[in-house]
Simulated scan of single mutants.
Amino acid sequence: MKFFLTFLFALLGVCINAQNLEKLSEKVTEEGIALYRSEMASWYGTDILRENYKNMENIGGYFSYLDDVPKCIFFSKQNKVIATISFPTNYDPKNAKVDLSERDFTPVETDYFTIRQKALTRINNDTIFNRYNNTNFNLVPIIKKNSKKVYVLTGASVNNVVIFGNDYLLTFNNKNEVESIEKLHKGIIVHNIGDGSIGADEGGVHSHVLDNWQQITPTDICTLMLYQKHTGWETYTTVSKKYASIWNNKSNKAFIMKTENFKKIANYQLEKNKKSENKKTQDSNK
């Protein structure tokens, strides 16, 4: 009976742990895709604005958010909305709706604008933020229910480079005041992707060492989705002392497992490959 109870509790623990990892996978995937959708609107929105708006020196900044459709908002130095670009779900620039009429921020847009500007002020005055040559910061405000955040990603200003790390998360309270600032990676990870041809690499990997971010981050997922066409990566893996996270670019899902289990699988596959190679060598020597 004692053995049965011990086995039952062990099995229950495994099931609970699997459920927790599945929930963690779903949560980080959802947040990463939200970041991606916002950044896609910003990427295309900037290009469309340059084609349709002549007084670029009047631009004070921009941000994107998800309404019924993704929208990219450009505001003037007088803090008035001067361009609203709305996108279809496939982000086809040909089908984007461009509105260049000047107007005030909506109440929702006021919140996005406020936390973006406060995040920018902290970036310019807080030593936690590091700057690197040939890079720039991209600010991505995300508001969901009672959650207000600004993610700060580092993007490359040169071609054929993908950057992970040097990213940050600022959380805000209901008064739009900064509650916390944290790093999502300890440093910066730079991947050169050659000539950018699709299929150049099957996958990539980097490690996580910060205790609060042992799993793949939403910023990792956002970057992977933005650059997938350029890298050709089918999967990407992040590894920490606690978790191994595998991102699948075809399904757009993260799978998180314990690192110890990941290593067991990797070692098994390595041994399997060695046996296969040895057999081929033996067969060729016959």
Rank of each mutant, 00 (worst) to 15 (best):
Y268M: 15
D201S: 15
I221Y: 07
I123C: 12
T281Y: 07
Y36C: 05
A34K: 10
G194W: 02
Y65E: 04
N79E: 10
T29Y: 04
V209W: 00
S76F: 08
V152D: 03
Y44I: 13
N79I: 07
Y62S: 10
G203S: 12
V28R: 07
N160C: 09
E102G: 07
N58L: 10
L5R: 06
I246P: 08
Y53W: 11
F129G: 04
E182V: 10
G61R: 07
S207C: 04
K27R: 11
L226P: 04
N166P: 06
D99I: 06
S157K: 09
I128A: 09
S42W: 02
K183W: 01
D201L: 11
W247S: 13
V28E: 06
F4T: 07
E109Q: 04
I221L: 13
S276G: 06
R122W: 00
T235I: 14
L8A: 13
N136R: 14
L11P: 00
N130Q: 05
I143V: 05
G165P: 00
L226W: 03
F74G: 00
A34G: 00
D47G: 03
I188M: 09
I59N: 01
R37Y: 00
V205A: 10
I48G: 00
L100Q: 07
V161G: 04
S76P: 03
I189L: 08
N95P: 00
L21Y: 00
K97E: 12
T171M: 11
V162G: 02
L8E: 07
V140K: 04
P70H: 01
E57V: 14
S180R: 07
G60D: 03
V205M: 15
A34C: 04
L35T: 09
A10T: 12
M257Y: 02
S251K: 12
D211M: 07
D92Q: 10
K149G: 01
A254N: 13
M56L: 15
N278T: 07
F172S: 08
G194Y: 04
K183V: 03
I85N: 02
G32D: 00
T154I: 01
Q78T: 15
G32H: 09
V205H: 11
L210T: 04
M1D: 10
G204Q: 11
E57L: 12
A18I: 13
A266R: 14
Q117V: 06
T219Y: 01
N95V: 08
Q282F: 08
M1Y: 05
A156W: 02
T89A: 09
G155C: 05
A96I: 07
R131S: 13
C15N: 08
Q117C: 05
E109N: 02
E177D: 10
L139D: 03
Q78L: 14
P141F: 06
C222V: 08
A156I: 06
W43T: 08
L5E: 11
V190E: 06
G194D: 09
V69M: 14
Y168Q: 02
S245F: 06
T84R: 13
V158N: 02
N252K: 12
T127K: 08
L11N: 01
H191F: 09
F255S: 14
V178L: 10
T110F: 05
G45N: 03
L35P: 03
H230P: 06
Q228R: 09
T114L: 04
E22A: 11
S207D: 06
Y236S: 09
P218K: 01
V28S: 09
F75R: 10
